[in-house]
């Protein structure tokens, strides 16, 4: 399917089943990235629809195992996003989380998962346009890799 980058078009015009060959899981914090994604939707910024969002209270709640579990259950890519460092709704949740995600990011290639299939980043509530960019870039990379066929993970 065509790369959905035209921001003037209304979101959701492509039927959700067509070309749905990869599954991407996004785990986002309630206060920043989920609100940012919401903002992107409200502004009708067109995004790749392979992204399935999971909302958690804070990135500090995200255990690296959530991402591993997603891969194990057949996800082709996992994106984690939260408040920018310094902007955490709970002050420091994302500082703790950052260390965990960095370790995860470094371990996943060792477990046979291509580096482009995982990303952690920060998107604030006001950054709808950035959310669109992050999603489209990430999903684009995952699509380029295609579906995963891991036997171990």
């Amino acid at each position: 399917m065509a790369q959905a980058t035209d921001t003037t078009q209304a979101a959701g015009t492509t039927p959700p089943d067509a070309g749905d060959e990869v599954k991407v899981v996004g785990i986002v914090c309630n206060w920043c990235s989920y609100a940012g994604a919401d903002g992107a939707g409200t502004a009708r910024l067109k995004q790749e629809f392979e992204m399935r969002l999971l909302r958690v209270p804070c990135t500090g709640r995200i255990d690296p195992l959530f991402a591993i579990k997603a891969f194990e259950k057949g996800a082709d890519g996992v994106l984690i996003s939260g408040c920018h460092p310094g902007d955490c709704h709970y002050s420091e949740g994302n500082y703790y989380a950052r260390r965990k995600f960095e370790l995860l990011d470094r371990m996943l290639p060792f477990l046979g998962v291509e580096p482009d299939r995982f990303k952690y980043t920060w998107v604030s509530a006001s950054e709808g346009a950035r959310w669109q960019k992050v999603v489209n870039e990430f999903v684009g990379k995952v699509k380029a890799l295609g579906p995963r066929e891991g036997r171990a993970l």
Binding site: P109, F110, L111, G112, V113, E114, G150, R151, A152, L153
Partner: peptide, 15 residues
């Protein structure tokens, strides 16, 4: 040695 393998080879070894 393990790090140098390709993703598919790592996956196969782990599996």
């Amino acid at each position: 040695e393990f790090e140098a393998l390709s993703p598919a080879e790592k996956d196969a070894k782990l599996a």
